[in-house]
């Protein structure tokens, strides 16, 4: 299932000409943020094969410090505990809303609000919900990277 990617709240002094400027950037920022978030969703949850031993590819779009923290935090999440007990996942919901800071119409930061629901198949069958926020900013090369996050992951 592809991510349902939507533009959330935009903070920017969007009177003209800034409104026009943001309109030019809107599609690009959504795509780039969406790409970074999809890397995490696919690599960490629903785009990898199971059973598996790690989720290394999940943090490819994270900054170095965030990657380090996230790898440690991953072990606290439900999905980590399930990784060797399941043989696949069935995605039920995959939505990302992107709030953007765009002073003068130019995107400078974003919060991706993630809502992911999937069920596992195999030895352990359960519904897993991943909700939270990823914080992103553009790097020097124009890619958007996750520099922080506040995510909860639970199963039942």
């Amino acid at each position: 299932m592809a991510t349902r990617l939507v533009l959330g709240r935009v903070a920017g002094d969007l009177h003209q000409p800034n409104k026009r400027i943001f309109k030019k950037h809107r599609k690009q920022v959504l795509e780039r943020v969406g790409r970074a978030v999809d890397t995490w969703i696919d690599g960490g949850f629903v785009g990898v094969s199971y059973p598996r031993s790690d989720f290394k590819s999940a943090f490819a779009a994270f900054t170095k410090p965030a990657k380090h923290d996230a790898r440690q935090q991953m072990k606290l999440m439900t999905n980590w505990k399930l990784r060797k007990k399941i043989d696949g996942v069935d995605v039920k919901k995959r939505k990302v809303a992107v709030d953007v800071l765009a002073p003068h119409g130019r995107p400078a930061g974003a919060t991706a609000r993630v809502d992911l629901v999937f069920t596992t198949t195999g030895h352990t069958r359960q519904k897993v919900t991943v909700t939270g926020r990823l914080f992103l900013g553009p790097d020097d090369h124009g890619s958007w990277r996750v520099f922080g996050y506040d995510v909860s992951n639970g199963g039942k």
Partner: peptide
């Protein structure tokens, strides 16, 4: 309030102004 949609973005924008 940090998990309210757009909360941080609008806060930063307001501070910048």
């Amino acid at each position: 309030n940090a998990d309210r949609p757009g909360f941080i973005e609008h806060g930063v924008l307001d501070a910048m102004s």
